[in-house]
Amino acid sequence: MKITLKVWRQKNSKEKGQFETYSLNSVSEDMSFLEMFDVLNEQLIREGKDPVAFDHDCREGICGMCSMYINGRAHGPMQGTTTCQLHMRHFNDGDTIVVEPWRAEPFPVIKDLVVNRSAFDRIIASGGYVSVNTGNAQDANSLPIAKHIADEAFAAAACIGCGACVAACKNSSAMLFVSAKVSQLSMLPQGKPERESRVVAMVKKMDEEGFGNCTNTGACEAECPKEISVMNIARLNREYIRAALASEEDV
């Protein structure tokens, strides 16, 4: 296949960027989207040009490192699929594909398509955990957890922290990411003791980082490669309101 790529190039966080156009003449339909970029980079290096920087690691859709806004969509056109799992057979010969980095104030561009997502780490550090030191644990089966609760907690915990929700949201809101972690831990008995302080701390941190506000468009859910439900956002809201209004604890 012949593919034309319009790729965002930006030397570093300080300099301005622009689109560059590249043609690839022999793209195999069995290639993944990132393997096409490997081929492009090989070509650029041989031509003495600077290869395109992009984030990637596991290439099996679980580490959450790959990003890319492809033809106006986070992780490209396929539902429930990360960029690394997107294959070229979903494109047509002669297509022009526009590739941009995630765009959000809290995700500044590092270079080309690489952005800094450490805001997510800081949100987790603010409360996305159960405070249990190693060695403190009781027997794993001492607290039975209903299967549907465990399943629901797992569905929320499946978040890979890639940031597609922020990228796809017209407001750059991180609510889906935050709600997934809050949901997981507030549903499980192990997370209940810190339920109130956790949600308040994480929302506070999220706001400080400069993410936008949720307007419930549902774009995050539609673009999430792990199909995390927006119902988690409703649960986050409920948890927050509960912590702020109903709890006697000063949080």
């Binding site: 806004y69 106006g72 104030e105 407001n171």
Partner: peptide
């Protein structure tokens, strides 16, 4: 919300999601 995305996307397929 607008401040949270100072640089807009060149192509955005909002209707898809």
């Amino acid at each position: 919300n607008q401040k949270a995305r100072p640089v807009k996307y060149a192509v955005n397929a909002g209707n898809a999601n």
